[in-house]
Each structure stands twice: as C-alpha cells, then as structure tokens.
Design a protein around this nucleic acid. Structure first.
Length: 162
DNA sequence: AACCCGTTCAACCGCCATTAA
DNA sequence: CTTAATGGCGGTTGAACGGGT
C-alpha cells in the first residue's frame, strides 16, 4: 500500500499555469489570504489544481517582490559560502537573499553556479594561483570530489591539497 | 528546412516534519 | 499518546528553447 494522495489526481490539472489560473489564485490570496489550508483552497475558488501546486505557484511566482534571474556576484558569493557550510538547504539559503525563492536558487546552483565555481576552481587551484576566498580554499577536497565526479578535471589534473 | 543536442527552469513527486483531532 | 491531515522541502523530470550542423 502506498501513501494516500493529497488530492484526486484524476480530476486535477497538471502542467503549466494559465494566466487565468494565475489571476484567480493571486486575486483570491491578495484579498483573503491562504485561509490556512492549501488543500481546501483550490476547490473553494474553483481551480482544478492540487493544493500543493497552488502553494508552489504562489510562493515561487505570484507573491509580491519576487526577483527572477540576474544573480549578482554578491549573491553568487552568499550562495556558495552557505552551500559549503550547510549544503543543499535551499530554503535557508533563500532566506538570506531577499526576493529569491528556494526553487530559483536550487535551479541556479544546479544549472549554472556549480559549473561556474568548478571552472573558477580549476582556473585558480589548477594553475597554482592563490584562491581568494579562505572558506572555499578549506574545502578543496570537497570540490575535488565534485569536479572529479562530473568530469570537470582540468587538463593538467592538478589540484592543491591544502 | 529539418534535425540534433545541450541548457534552462517551471512544476511534480515523494518523503519527513508539524499540527490538529 | 496515537493517528491522520497538511505543510514544507529537496530531488528530479520533461517541455521549451536556442544554437549548431
């Protein structure tokens, strides 16, 4: 026996949200709040969506003051230092970056930032240049494992072990 | 023009934590 | 205290897109 589903999968719509659905959800929450129950909310406002889907849509796209894309160098630095110290705790990392969502940061890290950082590592440590950031320098072994696993080893294959 | 392939990111899935009954 | 319902989170997927051939 599996776990009971949170909603009736057969009668619930999946996939991208339409502008109409967005408008329905946004205007209701702006006027009434979430009512403390995401599961009951879609039925109440006539949306054929899972409550969890509504929650995700609101938190990641519809709520006010959200920024997408255009991560600054300072944001890169904050994400990297937090990732090194606490790992993939995206909600905690997002809490340090106003206007950013955990989903956006997770996507940014997985698709861009970790590659960018690995490249930076190869270009600095791999050529024996001094790494400018001490916390990162202390985690060379960690990065080495990542870079090795992903096949991002520098042509020389050399890493500083300090 | 048609296809391939890598990248991006919105959204889903399933698990664990928390809360209510 | 126990159990069920709901919230929250991180991992993962797959459609859309764009550049290259």
């Amino acid at each position: 026996m599996g776990r009971a589903p949170c909603c009736d999968k057969a009668s619930v719509k999946k996939g991208p949200w339409s502008p109409e659905e967005d408008a329905t959800l946004k205007s209701y929450i702006e006027q009434n709040g979430t009512g403390g129950n995401w599961i009951a909310l879609p039925q109440k406002i006539g949306l054929r969506r899972c409550g969890k889907s509504c929650r995700l849509r609101w938190l990641n796209y519809l709520r006010p003051n959200i920024r997408h894309g255009g991560f600054s160098d300072e944001e890169d630095r904050i994400i990297l230092s937090l990732y090194i110290s606490i790992g993939s705790r995206w909600s905690i990392i997002a809490a340090q970056l106003p206007g950013r969502t955990d989903n956006d940061i997770k996507n940014y890290w997985n698709t861009r930032l970790k590659k960018k950082m690995a490249l930076l590592l190869v270009l600095t440590i791999g050529t024996s240049m001094q790494w400018p950031c001490r916390p990162v320098r202390c985690r060379v072994q960690w990065w080495k494992a990542i870079v090795s696993e992903k096949g991002w080893m520098s042509p020389s294959g050399s890493f500083c072990s300090s």
